[in-house]
Amino acid sequence: MVTPRPTRGYRVFQAVNAVVLTAVVVVTVYPFLTIVARSLSDNAAIVSGQVNLVPRGFNLTAYRVVTSDPAFWISYRNTVVYTVVATLISVVLTTCYAFVLSKKHLRGRTALVGIAVFTMFFTGGLIPNYVLVTSLGLKNTVWAVALPNAINVFNLLVMKAFFESLPVELEEAAAVDGLGTYGTLLRIVLPLSKAMVATMVLFYAVSFWNSWFAAFLYMDRQDLLPVTVYLRNLIVGASDATQTGGGLGSGDDIVQAAATIQSVTIVLTVLPILAVYPFIQRYFVSGIMLGAVKG
């Protein structure tokens, strides 16, 4: 495309655009920076509203308090366990079903796709799900987190689109060599789909790592909570204290102590995501594109 010399109006636009996009970046990043600053600051400095980007009264007390709380580590371990178990189940089920749905010759395929797609637009709703999970006796088990959301239909369609894009000849050759469906899937298709499977693992793992509501709903015991619910209890507890005007002794202390503790917990929860983000981001983008083209 030959680009003509930019007009003056367009140069003005470019300048404005640069300002707008810089603002987008600043607004996106600022909350992270201020949370880090607060987590490293002195309570008194936060109370007097002095902390924004630079820590005031630098100290690591809050980090020591949080990391020496066994409940924090237990919840962290729970998050890891739930994420691993749920992701494993999800990826296996999604791969199997996507593989089946990608076979154009399969009788009843349209119905099988329809069964999945319909659930994107109509769901049973919170209450029947709650009743179901409760009466299946899944409360206070990892299954309450893992099973009800095992297959994400969007991910399923992404993977189906990917399998459909694989050359048919490969599987025909496998069949000629005497491989059955299972053999073809395990020895031919999956080795070719490593990037796709990795993308699925990431999609599911991030969503289970971040999820909180299922655990909040179905876990009654403190030692079963994932770190997201641990953090939730911390922030809601803090805002309750503000509302009641600090019913417990000197309320201000409780609220302000919570401010640094909250910040530290936020930092420690978000850290793993931030650490892997640069590496996983492009997988997510390519996965979304694949889903959008075919889905």
Binding site: V24, V25, T28, N210, T228, S263, I273, Y277, P278, Q281
Partner: peptide, 30 residues
Amino acid sequence: FVQSVSYLPHFLSIVIVAAMVMQLLSVDGT
């Protein structure tokens, strides 16, 4: 660069976002 930065909030748990909102909007917040 702008794209990568702007995608980031999508990867956060809603709990984190809510907690950040509360910190930013608290009486002593930004």
